[in-house]
């Protein structure tokens, strides 16, 4: 069982190690990263993740059990960060190791969809206003005549 809700960074390589096992020939890992989205508040430079820890861990464990039962996953990874994450940092890694690829793809899809829909984790965007350079009329005229 590998369920984590942590303020420490993790890696896809670390998840791959957790997903090793005899006969587990199909491994699918999904990683989610913080995007530099642009919204009304400006350009996102970070996301603050928070969780209601005890219910979140219980729900993650239940999702893991269901993935094993439904898809025959021999190993499962469900890791999520909390705290402030900058653009580019990995916020979530889920993975499933099964005997064959079809079940592994289905299981990994199930893991991330269920995590997003049913685990009490929230993110809040932190953004900076985007400054637009002011046009100086004189220079604009110079360029237009050049």
């Amino acid at each position: 069982m590998s369920v984590r809700l942590t303020d420490r960074a993790f890696t896809v390589a670390g998840a791959m190690r957790m997903l090793e096992g005899p006969g587990l020939g199909g491994v699918v890992v999904f990683a989610g990263r913080v995007r530099p989205d642009r919204g009304r508040a400006g350009r996102v430079f970070a996301l603050d993740y928070e969780a209601h820890r005890a219910p979140a861990l219980r729900r993650l464990a239940a999702i893991e059990r269901e993935a094993r039962a439904r898809f025959g996953a021999g190993r499962v990874v469900l890791w999520h960060r909390v705290g402030r994450l900058k653009v580019g940092e990995i916020s979530v890694v889920v993975g499933a190791a099964c005997a064959h690829r079809a079940a592994a793809f289905d299981a990994a899809r199930f893991l991330i969809d269920e995590l997003k829909a049913s685990v009490p984790i929230w993110k809040t965007e932190r953004a900076r206003p985007v400054r637009r350079p002011r046009r100086r009329p004189g220079r604009a005229r110079e360029r237009s005549t050049g």
Binding site: P55, L115, P120, I121
Partner: peptide, 30 residues
């Protein structure tokens, strides 16, 4: 709503002194 760590399905449930009552807006992990 989450009452003492468990999802509340029945809003007639009594919330007693010392209990914890959590408000969970729609989730947004990932």
């Amino acid at each position: 709503f989450v009452h003492n760590g468990e999802y509340l399905h029945d809003l007639s449930t009594p919330i007693r002194p010392g209990d914890e009552f959590a408000v969970h807006p729609p989730y947004g992990g990932g």
